[in-house]
């Protein structure tokens, strides 16, 4: 086991330089910027203490945006945790052509969010397909202004996030389902347990590790939602569909308030950190399990 001292360093160097330059260094700079008044126009940032944070906490829009982000999380995460379980059960059957259906359900995942956003913007149009279906079924009388009304815009975008994510989480659950030994179901069949009971008492408990992963992944990505909003509503109308990342983007690249936006970014970091800590703990557990 002879090995020169700097051999590990040589292997680590390129990757670590990139991570250092594009994650660690910017991380420190972002925290520093959040205590300055930097706005791209002036040459040098001035230290202003916690003024940005004070201003942030006094900003009604920031609270509105934070509330909307949490609402996003509360609705989108349960939908993305539970709906894909049923999709996975559906495509886990031994049927002819089942791989075709799996691919179809995965299609929105591989399509870019921009195209998905455009397709749904067209679905949501006042005289679009969605309103037509709802009116035909007698669920609504007049067309709903899905993306242009303050009461529906955020929910309409949530639906798109869920729709695009279904296939991805379905596949994660599919991997979990295929790890469940089939003799458990055979035994339940002999005992005369209904399919629904089997799902509640066998599938869901044994799928718990996958459910954890999906919960964490979908929470973190829901906190960072941006593209669907940029493509479909630009945060409007009247900021009713604006979430935290969109707010940061607006402050930084429209108003050029880099210091202020960094402070909002630090808040985002703190919130996602809580989810990430759980994630890492979970990964370590998996790693140990893999080592056996």
């Amino acid at each position: 086991m002879k090995q020169r001292k700097f051999t590990p360093l040589m292997f680590l160097l390129p990757g670590c330089v990139i991570l250092g330059a594009f994650i660690f260094y910017p991380m420190i700079q972002a925290i520093w910027l959040s205590f300055t008044d930097y706005n791209m126009i002036q040459q040098n940032p001035n230290f202003v203490g916690v003024a940005n944070y004070k201003e942030l906490f006094a900003d009604e829009l920031f609270w509105k945006v934070l509330g909307q982000t949490l609402l996003y999380l509360i609705i989108v995460v349960p939908a993305l945790v539970f709906l894909p379980i049923f999709l996975a059960i559906l495509v886990n059957q031994q049927l002819k052509g089942i791989t075709f259906f799996r691919s179809i359900y995965y299609l929105p995942v591989v399509t870019s969010m921009v195209v998905v956003g455009i397709a749904w913007k067209w679905m949501y149009a006042d005289q679009g397909v969605l309103n037509f279906i709802l009116q035909s079924l007698g669920i609504v009388d007049d067309p709903v202004h899905w993306l242009t009304s303050t009461s529906t815009s955020l929910f309409a975008i949530m639906a798109v996030t869920v729709w695009k994510g279904l296939g991805y989480y379905m596949v994660i659950y599919l991997a979990g389902l295929q790890a469940i030994p089939s003799n458990l179901y055979e035994a339940a069949d002999i005992d005369g347990a209904s399919k629904w009971k089997q799902i509640i008492h066998i599938t869901i408990p044994l799928l718990m590790p996958s459910i954890m992963i999906v919960t964490i992944m979908s929470s973190i990505s829901a906190m960072k939602v941006f593209e669907e909003i940029y493509v479909m509503t630009q945060g409007g109308p009247l900021n009713s569909s604006m979430t935290l990342v969109y707010y940061i983007y607006n402050q930084a690249f429209d108003s050029l308030e880099m210091g202020y936006a960094s402070a909002a970014g630090v808040i985002l970091f703190i919130v996602t950190l809580m989810f990430s800590i759980v994630n890492i703990a979970f990964m370590n557990k998996r790693e140990q399990a893999m080592k056996g």
């Binding site: 910027l33 960094s262 970014g265």
Partner: peptide, 11 residues
């Protein structure tokens, strides 16, 4: 992995 790109994008 825990650091959101949305915080880093400014620096």
């Amino acid at each position: 992995m825990m650091i959101p790109f949305q915080l880093l994008m400014i620096p």
